[in-house]
Design a binder for these strands. Structure first.
Lengths: 329, 329
DNA sequence: CTGTTAGCGCATTCAT
DNA sequence: ATGAATGCGCTAACAG
């Protein structure tokens, strides 16, 4: 067993050709078919497999791309990571995943580690790093952001996001079709929260809907409960569009405390479609974040040498469930 | 920008020493302190960072360990992966994560890919591969199983599992303390299911509990609902211990359909503690799977050259919440 | 189409 | 304690 794995050289000897020829059949260079056959046989019988370190040393590539994820427990991030892996697999590359970079310093350190490893590309999920710093760290390694938390980079680092306005639009259309006229919004923080809120203001009128109230949350369930209580005290909306599903769950609690029956007394729409959203009582109508598609899009940009800048946002879709119904009366 | 990254040689020149000396300060060889200082300065000013490919070519290591996960969306697997990463980070190694090996063939292919990359170790989560095949694939690369689905390997591949019996024991103790006497079990498939079921039979008597019924599920919510309906039709247990939380959610539905009020009419205990288990109505009392600890334990074995064979199982703990209460009357 | 020649960047003898 | 030399396994010119 301790016999060192076979090398290119071994194969060459076994096949009675030069190492260059073996290298060519391995990497698809110009080789006469009969020769190639012999070499392939030798490869098979010896069980030869290329040494990636040696190859990387000379090519400068590693066929590995680094993926930075805030955490894998959040199902959306996991889905994104999965989408990235889909594309990598198709390109015969491997994903090196690092998690839990809560602050900019940690994240910068991890990016540096990955770059030192000569990764072929970097996918940054929910990154805090601003573009200038990032550019500095990565040199000319291809990078792409997905769902970044950082300030909208004016710089040239490509970024994949979902089209929040399209999601809100779908939700509003659904509500309007049910006959609602008065809606409210439990808004969220940061870019996604801001975009969804702006879309509410812009798009509600186009669906013939009045936006009666907007209350802030921090995306947490508890803040959703509190904001929900505030909202329900005013009570002139028949439907509430929540910044995300966790907030919607909080609103459920607030509604319950108030003795409201969902969806009879109030329609609720979420955003994200978490794994448990369909298990709520009533099952939550929500806008689904296409995590895997996001990941796919991001990874694709790494290879695709086309444009930089903003990439086509991914469109989320509405998942109608039991928390929406025609308004009372 | 296109100036190739600095090499050992560059540093040596800059510090006016030999490459061997630089290598020694980088890797902690015997170097006089004054010399070391000069070299470290040169390293810093040049921004030198070792080329892992070159290093790996010589040492035969890659400082990367491969992690195979069925999927990252399942929170337990994500937690395990996280635990693995904890340990790797402490050892300055990177994790290469691959997901979605649904069948043995796919999985074997991925193991082969990773081994070809000369990973320093392999963590297999929920693997289907039997030990013999695996040994053959990995040669002498260290491997460890976590929560394997495969038949209990008689071979020498170490494995980390949770102590299912301990989890069941904790749940039974909780129920007994509440005053229950008659319990039922919604059982699950495979090793974990079997172990939990066996523990129910073995341990219930020791807590003075009668195991009145056991109905099978496939770990899914839907099967939990169906099995739950069957169970409730007999109706002589005041508490049900479920094979996992998804099944418990199904049981909630069945109980609701039957007009039962939880936990007044029936106590329910789950297993896993999924992220949403605390959000169910009522919040589910459950046995928490210590995913991160599992991952840590597994990764630790990779380095620790100690024993092979079975490893100390990780003990899960009970999370008491709102779905358990004293029995009716 | 195929073989020869050089290194890629580094760790490691073996000297000194 | 340090330096000079050697090769890890492979690909990329360049010849033939």
């Amino acid at each position: 067993m301790p016999d060192r794995p076979p090398t290119l050289h071994d194969v060459a000897k076994h096949a009675a050709v030069s190492t260059a020829t073996v290298s060519r059949v391995v990497n698809g260079g110009p080789v006469a078919e009969p020769t190639a056959r012999v070499v392939r046989d030798a490869i098979r019988t010896l069980g030869y497999v290329p040494n990636p370190a040696a190859r990387g040393l000379i090519t400068g590539r590693s066929d590995v791309v680094g993926v930075l994820v805030p955490d894998l427990v959040g199902p959306l991030n996991a889905a994104i990571a999965r989408g990235v892996e889909d594309v990598l697999e198709a390109h015969d590359k491997l994903a090196t995943i690092m998690t839990d970079h809560r602050d900019e310093a940690r994240e910068a350190r991890r990016v540096a580690t990955l770059v030192a490893r000569r990764v072929d590309g970097l996918v940054l999920i929910g990154s805090h790093l601003d573009d200038a710093h990032l550019r500095d760290l990565v040199g000319d390694t291809p990078v792409v952001h997905v769902g970044a938390e950082r300030p909208p980079g004016a710089d040239g680092i490509p970024e994949v996001r979902i089209d929040n306005a399209a999601g809100i639009d779908a939700a509003l259309g659904h509500l309007a079709a049910l006959g609602h006229r008065d809606v409210a919004h439990l808004a969220g923080p940061r870019r996604d929260g801001a975009e969804r809120r702006a879309a509410m203001h812009d798009l509600a009128p186009r669906h013939g809907l009045h936006l009666r109230a907007v209350v802030d949350t921090d995306f947490s369930e508890e803040s959703g409960r509190a904001a929900g209580a505030t909202l329900l005290a005013e009570g002139d909306a028949t439907a509430v569009l929540c910044a995300n599903d966790r907030v919607a769950a909080g609103l459920y609690a607030a509604a319950r405390e108030r003795g409201l029956s969902l969806p009879r007394d109030l329609s609720v729409v979420g955003f994200d479609d978490l794994p448990w959203s369909g298990y709520l009582d009533p099952p939550l109508t929500t806008v689904r974040q296409p995590g895997r598609a996001l990941g796919r899009g991001a990874a694709a940009r790494l290879f695709d040498p086309d444009a930089g800048g903003e990439l086509a946002p991914v469109t989320p879709d509405l998942v109608p469930r039991g928390s929406t119904a025609p308004p009372p009366h």
